[in-house]
């Protein structure tokens, strides 16, 4: 009876998965945070521990979307839109309306500077950081990340598939008495050339707009990437589980359009990495 043999991975195998640069990058990023800094969002005046709510299962978000769709259809009092800041001619990035004991805040402009959202929330006395991150079309208008103060509960309004550059409708329902901080990231459609932020539930290749890519031909992948105006592509060779005889990758000229894509992922600096080979995975 030897459970060592069940060990899914050795330390050496794990080590080989992470490049020196990535390893150093994480250490540097960690050390750039100040010792009292809780990652990304805690400031002085923060009360209590935070509750983190991310990676909410899809089933839950779908249920929320259904519930909200009903509540949005009800008659309600419109409070906004408001325009904050010096440029009054600029359309509001958010709209606010009262609904019972809550304010329903929806996004008008999904590609606005997050600082504008913050200001507009602040005008209503709310401490909320909202951003929209580029995601694959399937995930546009869904919740990517949410973090609230302890005891805080915010309902999100989803607009699945409708968060392109023109339409949106994602938002959040904030109780009037909510005094905590929140950080929320919704997905929006990516602009040409933009990589997708990956999130829970993504399938391989989704981060670069090639979901379900394994098994498709290189020509098909080129077509999709071309449409998205992604030009920086690195090629890695795969044949029977090995990268021999091209351990350092291939040039585009060496890649045949009829080959198959085994995998696709986002590299650094907006590059896509395609794992390709002559044999169907």
């Amino acid at each position: 009876m030897n459970i060592e043999r069940l060990n899914p991975i050795t330390e050496e195998e794990a080590a080989a998965m992470v490049s020196r640069q990535t390893r150093d990058d994480l250490a540097e990023r960690v050390m750039k945070t100040t010792p009292d800094d809780v990652p990304t969002s805690v400031r002085p005046g923060w009360s209590g521990r935070r509750r983190l709510l991310v990676g909410i299962p899809l089933a839950v978000t779908v249920a929320t979307a259904a519930m909200i769709a009903v509540s949005v259809a009800e008659p309600d009092q419109r409070v906004g839109p408001v325009s904050v800041g010096p440029n009054r001619a600029e359309a509001a990035a958010l709209s606010f309306r009262k609904e019972g004991d809550s304010l329903v805040v929806t996004v008008n402009d999904p590609v606005a500077d997050p600082a504008r959202y913050k200001k507009e929330f602040a005008a209503y006395g709310m401490d909320i950081d909202l951003t929209l991150a580029p995601v694959s079309p399937r995930r546009a208008g869904t919740l990517v990340f949410m973090e609230t103060s302890e005891g805080g509960h915010l309902e999100t309004i989803l607009a699945e598939g409708r968060c392109g550059s023109e339409v949106c409708g994602v938002g959040v329902k904030v109780p009037m008495d909510y005094k905590g901080h929140a950080r929320i990231v919704f997905g929006r459609a990516a602009r040409p050339g933009e990589m997708y932020d990956e999130g829970p539930g993504d399938v391989p290749g989704e981060g670069v707009g090639l979901p379900d890519v394994p098994g498709h031909t290189v020509a098909e992948a080129w077509a999709v990437l071309g449409e998205r105006k992604i030009t920086r592509v690195l090629y890695r060779y795969v044949f029977r589980g090995s990268d021999r005889p091209y351990p350092d990758g291939l040039t585009r000229d060496q890649v045949k359009p009829e080959w198959y894509v085994h995998d696709a992922l986002a590299g650094t600096d907006d590059q896509v990495i395609l794992f390709v080979g002559p044999v169907k995975p």
């Binding site: 994480l26 990652p39 973090e147």
Partner: peptide, 14 residues
Amino acid sequence: GARRRTALSDRLRG
């Protein structure tokens, strides 16, 4: 179900 995702791990995620 409580995940903390930070920019710290973006590169490693890739």
